[in-house]
Design a protein around this nucleic acid. Structure first.
Lengths: 249, 249
DNA sequence: GCAACCAATTTTGCATTCATTTTTTGTCTT
DNA sequence: AAGACAAAAAATGAATGCAAAATTGGTTGC
């Protein structure tokens, strides 16, 4: 039983709606890159599994040249790794890798908060407040899916308010790497953590209203740090419980 | 007079000593990538100039396939940009781009400081202190080149002390983008700024010794922010004074 | 019965080739 | 003489081809 890419019948369904940080609209290579990235991020290939060029070429209906170019880029982004003469594999993130990623994300959001204090408008703050209340509703309903959705939009709003396109693109890239793990591991933060998170979010809003950069920076970092703990903990459980990954078995 | 790559006779001289974040030792593509990156970072191609594939192929003695793969990666890193059907150009950074880059660097270093407080050893702090005194010597001698050199090593030491390989690689990548501008613009901070910078460094060391994460984070951010002002200011002068770039004329 | 070895097949890495698109250059018109 | 148009030249984007390396399967020897 060799690990294989699930046959979806149709090629990759996504109409290239990913983050438009670096899309090369017209080129085939650019299109492929977006689709492949989404495909990997969404966890369609198991951790550590090989990414056979031939198969992907058929799947995408292209030749190997543009595909290989896309693979090189994905490797540079850290989503896959290229073993010399042994093809591409989906990068299996160790626990340590995840810790590092979360910390970098924390740093980037912390920075975003700092910068946001310089430029954010009252209307933007109001919008985040509305999201916050919306999220609170989902919290009360124990609606995990929508809670996450809105939670993510809040964090994205803060990053957007930083008015720094470079930061936004970097943040999106790292978010993708983590999102992959989230998909695979079917993350579900313990409900208990939700309460803390809600309180932290209130503190974030408070600091934002007062436009206190250092304080907001600290709170955001700590907030993400707490997320990190929950996520790593959960992942450890999942990896222990679940079957060994495609890479090892 | 069209902008052209200086003929060095020999291929690119550098023995691939760049950051080993993502080196693919054995593959031709990986080797090419390292050499090309250094070549671009060191400013051997003027801002906005075309990067002709053919010419580079001859220069490197390879075919277009691995070269194009490397170009795609460099584009993803933000060093060059790929115009559809019109080849690769060295990315001309606007003033705003630079501001953004400096701010992200500031955020990363600020994060590094925060993390360093958790793990840095007394010996590492002592090493940074030694660098600091060494830098002070260069400051007194107005030895700009060595001052910069040591200054950079101090910042790298802080990043290293964060014990986060992901952060280190990201930091190195952004540093490369800025370094390119530095090479081209022949950066020289005003001597007046040096004094402030020295004082800021002392504050950094102080916070580091006390392992005060929030404080260190703040100081580092502000320090980099001040650097940013000086750099942007200088660049504006240079760009005004100098001839129009290769891109526009 | 199991491990080690060797041949066949597959896969990868790079060069070459082909089709478009862009850029240049030469000519013609006004 | 200047501008516009058209053909030639060059460059780009992608497909194909070929040599080298790795994986697979089968066989042999212990």
């Amino acid at each position: 039983m060799k690990p294989t890419i699930p046959e979806t019948g149709m090629p990759i369904a996504r109409p290239a709606t990913g983050n438009d940080a670096d899309r090369q609209e017209t080129s085939l290579h650019g299109e492929i890159l977006l689709r492949l990235r989404d495909y990997v991020v969404e966890g369609n290939i198991p951790d550590g599994a090989r990414v056979p060029e031939r198969q992907l070429c058929e799947m995408l209906g292209i030749s190997r040249t543009p595909l290989r170019e896309a693979l090189k880029v994905l490797a540079a982004e850290g989503l896959i790794e290229l073993l010399p003469n042994r093809g591409a594999r989906v990068r299996q993130l160790s626990e340590r890798d995840l810790e590092e990623l979360f910390d970098v994300m924390a740093g980037l959001e912390s920075l975003a908060g700092r910068l946001a204090c310089e430029a954010i408008t009252d209307e933007e703050i109001a919008a985040i407040e509305r999201l916050h209340y919306k999220m609170y509703g989902h919290y009360l309903n124990s609606d995990m899916h929508n809670y996450f959705q809105v939670n993510q939009r809040i964090h994205e709003s803060i990053v957007a308010a930083a008015r720094n396109e470079t930061l936004r693109a970097t943040y999106a890239s790292f978010a993708g790497r983590i999102r992959r793990v989230r998909y695979s591991a079917n993350f579900a933060r313990k409900r208990q953590r939700w309460g803390e998170a809600m309180r932290e979010h209130e503190a974030i809003l408070d600091a934002l209203r007062r436009r206190a950069p250092s304080e907001l920076s600290d709170i955001l970092f700590q907030h993400l740090r707490n997320k990190r703990s929950a996520a790593i903990e959960h992942l450890a459980t999942v990896r222990d419980t679940n079957a060994p990954t495609a890479a090892t078995g």
